[in-house]
């Protein structure tokens, strides 16, 4: 009986190994097609001084982005009260069943402003409503 139990378990494991788990068709491994999407994240490398005419941004990318063309566009809208930043990135379109690792990378981008920052708040226009972009403490 114990031998039979062992055989039963072994057979179950063998069948499991041969059958795609969950009867998934595996989807596809993602095509070579790309898309342009809002940047996953952005922070300020440092808090700007009122006289600064540039912002140093740390832009986050998903594991679906790669290469020198990953950054699609950085749009800047400056007013007396705010500096709005809208960043878009290119990424590969994943397959429907593709496991995409939850890793990420970041890259630095410096943007020039027409006017000094002054007292304006720097906000992410990809968020609705626009949200303040935080700065690193440097620590």
């Amino acid at each position: 009986m114990r031998r039979g139990t062992a055989r039963l378990i072994a057979a179950g494991l063998a069948v499991l190994a041969a059958v795609p788990a969950g009867c998934s068709d595996g989807g596809h491994d993602g095509g070579q097609s790309t898309r342009v999407v809002p940047a996953p994240s952005v922070v300020l490398e440092r808090a700007p001084a009122p006289t600064d005419r540039e912002l140093v941004l740390r832009i986050g990318f998903s594991a679906l982005s790669s290469g020198p063309d990953a950054l699609a566009d950085v749009e800047v809208r400056q007013s007396a009260d705010s500096v709005g930043i809208r960043i878009t990135v290119r990424e590969r379109v994943p397959g429907d069943d593709e496991a995409v690792s939850n890793s990420a990378f970041t890259a630095t981008e410096t943007v020039r402003l027409d006017q000094p920052v002054g007292d304006a708040t720097v906000v992410d226009l990809n968020r609705d409503p626009p949200a303040e972009i935080r700065a690193l403490s440097g620590g």
Binding site: G22, G26, L64, S101
Partner: peptide, 22 residues
Amino acid sequence: PERIAAAKPADRGVTPEEVRST
């Protein structure tokens, strides 16, 4: 901070066969 900012993705290019793993 500059080096952290330059970090790249750990994309491991998972295949359909790998997706089927148990």
